[in-house]
């Protein structure tokens, strides 16, 4: 090979290298950055950390797949609606593209939505809806359908066993729409399937101590009760204590077994279901909520008009047979 040929080869290689570098830079230059402001009302639950982690994790994946970079600015309001309003104002001033807020107060969040709209910032409410001014979109769990899917599966379990249920219902906090919807779902299926009768409703206000005393009192008042609906299994050990004290703690298959339908599959619920004490539950799917949130935020950032639509994520029905094999279970990843 003569010198001229070597020179031509070198120039060609340089050209190819330079052009590929240039095209890569151009591609990088084309990659859009979406800045999302995330306003938590509080961080008093592992689930909230799970949501945030999953959002960031899926955000990275979504960014790679769609050639965008997602930046997050996160703040927490410590259960104070006025602090949340101030935090959202900060996000607006930082000129984020989209705000995702989990409202602490369904009414108070309306003013923040209006302020964001005025500033041209898109707004998504998450998990809890606004009762006033409506956002560009809402993402959350479908609490009503969550209870419906659990209750229907529970009705089938009781029917297959030939059992007519007398149920204790442990309700959540009646100020929480999720709790109200779950109760409604349970009673709708009760009416339609006629597989059980709710003999007593106990409000727990999401207080673990009341899960225990409520169960104990209900069992005293209705010793004939043979099944339970628990609005959330986050404090299941409190229910376990009451059942143990009443001599009713027994796994599936034991004649003393109390049939239990619960909601969420939190870490304590997950363990109890694995051990065969909870018959059925519907998951509160943090991972899928996060996926939906990132997708909806990206659509809004790209100028799509979602007209205040609700994006509700249905949970998956879990039983002792499948609970260990369901993927993306936050209760597995975030248990102590």
């Amino acid at each position: 090979m003569n010198l001229k040929a070597i020179f031509c080869l070198a120039v060609s290689l340089l050209f190819v290298g330079a052009s590929s570098t240039l095209s890569l830079s151009a591609e990088k230059a084309k990659a859009k950055t979406i800045t999302i402001g995330l306003s938590w009302n509080e961080k008093m639950h592992a689930m909230i950390q799970a949501w945030e982690d999953y959002m960031k994790k899926y955000g990275e994946q979504y960014g790679k797949e769609n050639n965008v970079t997602i930046k997050w600015i996160v703040n927490v309001a410590d259960s104070d609606p006025s602090q949340q309003a101030s935090n959202i104002e900060d996000l607006i001033n930082q000129k984020v593209d989209v705000i995702i807020a989990r409202p602490h107060d369904a009414a108070a969040i309306g003013a923040s939505i209006a302020a964001a709209r005025k500033a041209g910032v898109k707004f998504i409410t998450f998990d809890r809806k606004s009762s006033g001014v409506q956002p560009d979109a809402h993402v959350g769990a479908d609490s009503f359908n969550q209870a419906i899917s659990t209750s229907e599966a529970f009705a089938k379990i009781l029917k297959d066993k030939g059992i007519k249920g007398k149920a204790i219902e442990l309700m959540g906090d009646l100020r929480d729409m999720n709790a109200v919807q779950r109760s409604k779902g349970w009673h709708d299926v009760e009416k339609s399937k006629k597989q059980w009768t709710t003999v007593i409703q106990v409000p727990t206000e999401w207080d673990a101590q009341k899960f225990m005393t409520g169960t104990a009192n209900a069992l005293q008042a209705h010793p004939e009760a043979n099944c339970m609906f628990i609005a959330s299994d986050f404090a299941f050990s409190a229910v376990q204590t009451a059942l143990e004290n009443a001599g009713r703690w027994a796994p599936i298959g034991d004649p003393k077994h109390m049939y239990i339908a619960s909601q969420d599959v939190n870490p304590q619920g997950y363990e109890a279901m694995k051990a065969g004490y909870i018959d059925v539950a519907t998951t509160y799917d943090c991972y899928f909520h996060a996926v939906e949130l990132v997708k909806v935020a990206a659509k809004l950032a790209n100028g799509e008009n979602l007209k205040g639509k609700d994006f509700l994520v249905a949970g998956r029905v879990a039983t002792p047979a499948n609970v260990e094999t369901l993927d993306n279970m936050w209760a597995r990843d975030y248990k102590d």
């Binding site: 639950h45 207080d207 673990a208 899960f211 225990m212 404090a235 050990s237 409190a238 376990q240 204590t241």
Partner: peptide
């Protein structure tokens, strides 16, 4: 006493 009764420290412990 509360923790020993219910078997856990919950995040709502003592709220209100």
């Amino acid at each position: 006493f509360s923790v020993f009764q219910i078997g856990a420290v919950t995040l709502q412990m003592g709220t209100g």
